[in-house]
Design a protein around this nucleic acid. Structure first.
Lengths: 187, 187
DNA sequence: CGCCTTCATGTCAGTCGCTGTCATCACTAG
DNA sequence: CTAGTGATGACAGCGACTGACATGAAGGCG
């Protein structure tokens, strides 16, 4: 390590989450985040592309995890089932307690700029799922539609997971439930 | 009208489209757009919330049109069919020639910031469709899933419409085709 | 015809997100 | 001990966006 205190990236993430939660996203300055983390504003932008990205750091891991699950999924699964299986695997990343994800989601939902960023991240997730389906021999159109359906199902399961307090079911089960509902709707 | 030349809003839209197409979105300054339109930078921000919004002016009309079509759709249609019928109605707004929409889409696809904005607009479209389905008595979950499915189907139809040059089919037919493919995938 | 309200615009100052550039300094390989 | 590496600080600068105030034409009204 250097003269600097290590873990600047993590401190920036925590500081940003705290401040966004306290004062709101727009009312928070990057300089303030940096100050709380004990670094310079410039350092913030060396770790995160912009003021929003600090909230979406785990996205790469999520994509890798989901793509891995898709690759490992049984070859005889239908495209949609394989894609759904893939997004179910995300439960491994989120853990059992929805508290953390719920707090983060509350921040995101509170500001359109952050929702935009979330949407393009989900779009990216759908893109890598579609790509994985293509590698399974699924035609382009079917891959695209199955991927976006899987993401829709994931979103619904995720929202229920962080919303319902009396509901003790896990993220995976809620995603499977949403998938069943999607099938009922498209029937 | 006043001392000012009327139609500032329209001139700003045209100027922005031209400049975004010529130099790209990021390389274009709001001051440049305003100058080409013969107004001040400040006036730009009086007409459009930000530099991106100038490309998404027709979104309100689209939502209204789609919601109207959803309201008018036969009551015995399934939620998904009604939602699909609604997005099909968008063809009325886009006209027959995909040239204009294609040019606009090329600009949007060229920059992530614009794609973000497009995604949140589509999300808004899905939201109003879901709302319309709720008014039809569709349960929340089914309404949400049907709406997002309809938007996915719309996107696929739209992309084919502006892409395929030898394909003379209209937007409506391409959307119906995508819907059939979605049904095949979710089967 | 002249006054007054309205409203789109111009002007100006200022904040903040974000970037390029160069210096600094601890750590590390040789 | 020296040169290189890598994360950081310091600083100047651009451009997006906002708030406040001034301006001048259009239209209503006496």
């Amino acid at each position: 390590m250097g003269r600097w205190v290590p873990g600047a990236r993590g401190r920036l993430q925590r500081a940003a989450m705290e401040l966004y939660a306290e004062r709101g996203f727009e009312q928070t300055t990057v300089a303030e985040i940096a100050a709380r983390a004990g670094v310079t504003e410039r350092t913030f932008f060396r770790h995160f592309a912009d003021k929003r990205e600090v909230l979406f750091a785990g996205q790469e891991q999520l994509s890798e995890l989901v793509v891995g699950a898709l690759t490992d999924a049984p070859a005889d699964l239908s495209p949609l089932d394989a894609a759904a299986r893939a997004v179910e695997a995300s439960a491994e990343l989120f853990g059992e307690r929805p508290d953390g994800p719920r707090a983060r989601q509350a921040i995101i939902d509170a500001h359109p700029d952050l929702r935009e960023r979330e949407l393009i991240k989900l779009e990216g997730l759908a893109a890598v799922i579609a790509e994985g389906l293509l590698r399974r021999g699924v035609p382009t159109a079917a891959a695209t539609l199955a991927a976006s359906s899987a993401v829709a199902v994931f979103r619904m399961g995720f929202e229920r997971w962080i919303t319902d307090d009396g509901d003790d079911r896990g993220l995976e089960e809620l995603i499977r439930e949403a998938l069943a509902e999607l099938r009922a709707v498209t029937r």
